[in-house]
């Protein structure tokens, strides 16, 4: 935290000293700079969609992987292997292009926004596959004796799930889930390849404008430093929030293995 402020102060001072065009740098930043504001809002909106869907998929399939019946287990294993086995950028391109090909000539659907939505879902599914493995490991970490103890006092199966298994699983899995979320936030940048107007897209756009418009090419560095900074701030806020949740629910003897 201290290091971050120091770096920012130094960068600002360097701007005051005329090392780069400070006025241009400040004009780009939200909320004044239109492009980066749109980019920031889009990135946050993508997160708001991808995180809950990815988590729901991860939770559902992770749970299914620990099922006693073979069908949900096999289904979940197929899901995980499929979506883990491809680079997310390939998955996104695939989802986008396949949707467009299928809907070609269909005038009842707005093809491009629809294809973009499918790609967003594909990214969520990719993260969901990783989260499913985290959830599975978390559920398996709850000893069978805890469940037997629940049975021994007459708790129903659903009560054991919601009151014993899940609370213990969450405490064990939270650090790994936080890690995956941090990774997912930055993976939303891959959606810029199919035209999502997120921070990364805006960076490419601003750079192109600069280059084509014959501006000072050095300023490209300023653009990307600011974009990197905005991603950093988003990730920092999310991971700190998760750490706070972790701390709130910390119980002696149930900490996840500390790295």
């Amino acid at each position: 935290m201290f290091g971050t402020w120091t770096a920012l102060t130094l960068a600002y001072l360097a701007g005051l000293e005329g090392l780069y065009d400070l006025r241009y740098a400040l004009s780009l930043l939200p909320p004044g700079g239109r492009a980066l504001t749109t980019g920031l809002v889009t990135t946050l909106a993508l997160m708001a969609v991808v995180i809950p869907i990815g988590f729901s998929l991860g939770f559902t399939f992770g749970w299914a992987r620990t099922s006693h019946s073979w069908f949900p287990r096999a289904l979940a294993a197929t899901y995980v292997e499929f979506f883990r086995g491809m680079p997310p950028i390939v998955l996104i391109a695939f989802a986008f292009l396949i949707t467009i090909v299928i809907l070609r000539g269909n005038d009842r659907v707005d093809v491009f926004p629809f294809a973009t939505s499918v790609s967003v879902l594909a990214l969520a599914a990719h993260s969901g596959a990783y989260q499913a493995e985290i959830v599975r490991a978390g559920i398996l970490s709850v000893p069978a004796t805890q469940i037997e103890a629940g049975e021994s006092i007459g708790l129903s199966r659903s009560t054991i799930l919601t009151r014993i298994t899940l609370p213990q699983m969450f405490r064990v899995s939270l650090p790994a889930l936080g890690n995956e979320l941090a990774s997912l936030i930055k993976d939303t940048s891959l959606l810029s390849t199919i035209g999502a107007l997120d921070l990364t897209f805006q960076g490419k756009n601003l750079s192109a404008v600069l280059v084509v418009g014959g501006g000072n090419i050095d300023l490209v560095i300023v653009i990307w430093v600011e974009i990197a900074l905005l991603y950093f701030v988003i990730t920092f806020v999310v991971t700190r929030t998760l750490q706070a949740i972790e701390k709130m629910y910390r119980v002696p003897g149930l900490e996840a293995a500390q790295l």
Binding site: Q146, G150, E151, S152, G154, P167, Q168, L254
Partner: peptide, 21 residues
């Protein structure tokens, strides 16, 4: 229902098995 039976008969385990959370 087994749940009903287990209310009638309590059990204490060798390794305690208290709910850790």
């Amino acid at each position: 229902r087994p749940e009903w039976v287990r209310q009638q008969v309590g059990m204490v385990f060798q390794s305690f098995n208290l709910f850790t959370h």
